[in-house]
Nucleic acid binder design. Structure first.
Length: 323
DNA sequence: CACCAGGCAAGCC
DNA sequence: GGCTTGCATGGT
């Protein structure tokens, strides 16, 4: 029990909690893993629903691939994930990539059942509904550079078009690799983007955001922006540093803190969150973003980021406050 | 045609 | 500090 509570706020490292690290079958306290014919099979993991994970606006590079499957690219590797009858399968991957990339990317070391219990233990009917709708949400641990550029692109944009722009960025400027007989592209490096002109970048149709992308890439390459340094800063300092980047303001920096830097207390307030918070907690009366942020900080604290994802998914599924 | 989309920068007070 | 406006593009 002590371990479970501990796991809410930390993350179980793959290597730390597996009983038998040398065999092809492993357990940790919240799931069972097997490596069978180039596939990773995960069972005894109930807090995992692909639609919730990949359709809650945190990640723009995974798409449905048939029933109960998604396929996408992260850290330069592509994986097809399917989930059916309590069995999650990561197809055509290696144990190495599972340990080094996907285990952490999918946040498999965190106990989301405990998080959901904690968020709803106060008897908040709003959060109970939200958690019911998005019960399989997990917060992905994404690459910082990709998260920075992706959320610069997200400003004043809609999710389908964000995905389209990022897709064009990768297919035009990323490195190709083959997976299951098809070609996929990595997210382009800072060096690659920094070498482009604004005109080159025009093919991705990013609109007014193109200059932010180019400026950021150039400054990352020159060292003026040090992402490694930012990742080791305290959350307030990291936020200040991110907000110095052209094109990154309050909301985008909160998204980067949550999705790219693992700061789970970060509570990004966008138009959807603003609407659902006003509707559910403020008698549907308009509030400033600052008021909503402070309310969320008091109410959700360390779990603000998780609460935000459940609310965001719930708001969009039920179109709360729209019409 | 207007209005909006996981906002932000710049210019104003 | 807070408030307004313009911004690229594509969809409704």
């Amino acid at each position: 029990m002590k371990l479970l509570l501990f796991a809410i706020f930390t993350k179980l490292k793959y290597f730390d909690y597996f009983l038998d690290n040398s065999s092809r079958m492993c357990y940790n306290i919240i799931m069972k893993t097997e490596f069978i014919d180039n596939d990773i099979h995960i069972t005894e993991q109930d807090d995992f629903i692909l639609q919730h994970i990949f359709d809650c606006g945190q990640c723009f590079r995974f798409d449905p691939d048939g029933d109960n499957s998604y396929i996408g690219t992260a850290f330069g590797k592509t994986v097809k994930i399917s989930a059916e009858n309590g069995r999650i399968i990561l197809h055509d991957t290696s144990m190495e990539d599972f340990k080094n990339i996907w285990y952490d990317y999918l946040d498999l070391g965190r106990d989301y059942s405990a998080i959901k219990r904690k968020l709803t233990e106060g008897g908040d009917p709003v959060m109970e509904e939200a958690v019911k709708y998005g019960s399989g949400i997990r917060i992905l641990n994404q690459e910082l550079w990709e998260t920075v550029i992706s959320f610069i692109i997200s400003a004043s944009n809609n999710i389908p078009r964000i995905k389209k722009i990022i897709g064009l960025l990768c297919s035009n400027f990323g490195e190709p690799h083959t997976y299951r007989g098809k070609i996929y592209y990595s997210f382009p490096s800072p060096e690659r983007i920094a070498g482009l002109s604004l005109e080159d970048l025009g093919v991705i149709r990013a609109g007014f955001r193109d200059k932010y992308i180019l400026d950021c890439a150039k400054k990352v390459v020159s060292g003026e922006i040090d992402l490694a340094a930012i990742s080791s800063m305290s959350t307030p300092d990291a936020k200040k540093a991110l907000m110095k980047i052209w094109g990154i303001g309050n909301k985008v920096s909160d998204c980067i803190l949550l999705f790219g830097l693992g700061r789970c207390d970060s509570f990004p307030v966008d138009v959807w969150i603003k609407r659902i918070m006003e509707y559910c907690y403020f008698d549907n009366t308009p509030q400033s973003i600052k008021t909503i942020s402070e309310f969320a900080e008091n109410k959700f604290g360390e779990l603000g980021g998780m609460a935000q994802q459940y609310l965001f998914f719930y708001a969009r599924e039920c179109r709360i406050g729209v019409e």
